[in-house]
Design a protein around this nucleic acid. Structure first.
Lengths: 230, 230
DNA sequence: CGTGAAGTTGATGTATCTCAATTGTCGTGG
DNA sequence: CCACGACAATTGAGATACATCAACTTCACG
């Protein structure tokens, strides 16, 4: 049996796909209940407090996973790029979403509805293994973030964050890299856990140190440094 | 078939046990390769960077899950109480431990070695489901912590932390609760992500506000407040 | 070309870090 | 039982970082 019927077969993340191990009869189940959903920038995939209605795989674009406090304050817990899985925590635990997922760019997600996902997972434990591993990976990222927050000052954390964003969204331009920031200053501040005014001043400091140049949402940074042999 | 042969049958956390769904032939496998390990306070269950050698379930005592930075700085990522699972991240992903687990009190863990755990999980997917759910739960805790760090000031976070510790380790004494802190000031500081000097001053402030009294590792706090109807 | 939201700047108070010095705690051996 | 040392914890002083509030500017967009 070839996998040309696999709904993820044409996806560029097929090999890493959560659903990759699905085969046989389950593949038909999966194919039948598998939908793509196009989303415009700014629209929300699922809201905080909503019940789980399935598992989502980002196929194109970019999502922000946010959490809002009772007082209206917001945290940006992670960004989800194509190939990443979102909404699986609520699926795994059966509890409501504790975060909201908002598209930051025109995006596409592949959706497997709750009931069908459960059925496929039951029939194909290898899928569950992959799911658990992704969960463990995200746990690592959280741990890293907690440690970074305790270790490096916010200015350095911002520089790191911008480098990561540059790697994902930047284009080379001579010795410099340039990008259009996919997220607002407020979101940047929410990632670092500081106020927007503070973020603005952190950026100014990095700028005065010659580590970047900004103009609105455009940011320019010197490319990855050459390593010198001392 | 009764479950009197189940190695976790006598554990007070049996119903919630990861291995609870194991039955039949797998139960014998589990029972054969199941060991208990007593640990004295201060000893280390696994080191950061060590390869995974199984899954551990805390049966008695208390463990600190720590991470050390390249510069020697430490973070305390979580405390693990009886009934909780530790070391499963390395088991799930097959990568090395990124944290170390140290007993803070005389403790006991139940160990299922790598190879056997894998075999049982393969034969009994319900175990994997439970494992994934625990992972998702820990992810929630991490998210909560990141948000708390961004929202509440460190003084309030310390007060919350002490209340949690009091709930776990305190004993009522009239209108007050009293406990012997199971962790050092350095560890408390590592949980909050502040320096020990700052922690000392935060405690002093709480003390001057009458919210607690300390003497070495002994801490006394007024019990849970009566709710007043306005 | 106005209008509202997003972003910036300034001024000021609070919180935290850092380094150094001091005090306290606990186990050990005299 | 006490003295002692090693380490944990506290305190002080000064510098740095961040929050807050208000005013201002820039930007996106109709």
């Amino acid at each position: 049996m070839t996998n040309k019927n696999h709904p993820c077969a044409n996806c560029s993340f097929y090999e890493q796909s959560l659903w990759r191990p699905v085969a046989g009869a389950n593949m038909s189940t999966l194919a039948r209940n598998f939908t793509r959903r196009e989303m415009e920038a700014g629209s929300v995939l699922y809201h905080q407090g909503a019940p789980s209605d399935g598992v989502y795989c980002v196929s194109r674009g970019l999502f922000a996973i946010r959490s809002f406090g009772p007082d209206g304050s917001s945290s940006l817990l992670r960004l989800a790029y194509p190939g990443e899985l979102i909404g699986y925590r609520a699926f795994l635990t059966g509890r409501d979403h504790r975060t909201e997922a908002q598209a930051l760019l025109p995006s596409r997600v592949c959706v497997v509805a709750q009931r069908d996902a459960k059925q496929v997972v039951r029939a194909c434990p290898e899928v569950l293994t992959r799911l658990a591993v992704r969960c463990a990976d995200e746990l690592d990222l959280c741990h890293d973030r907690i440690q970074e927050a305790a270790r490096s000052p916010n200015k350095e954390r911002l520089a790191q964050l911008l480098e990561q964003l540059m790697a994902a969204h930047g284009t080379k331009d001579g010795r410099f890299e340039r990008m259009h920031l996919p997220i607002s200053r407020q979101d940047l501040a929410d990632i670092l856990g500081v106020q927007p005014e503070t973020l603005s001043r952190l950026i100014k400091r990095l700028q005065s140190e010659g580590r970047l140049r900004t103009s609105g949402r455009w940011i320019e940074m010197p490319g990855p440094m050459q390593k010198h042999v001392i």
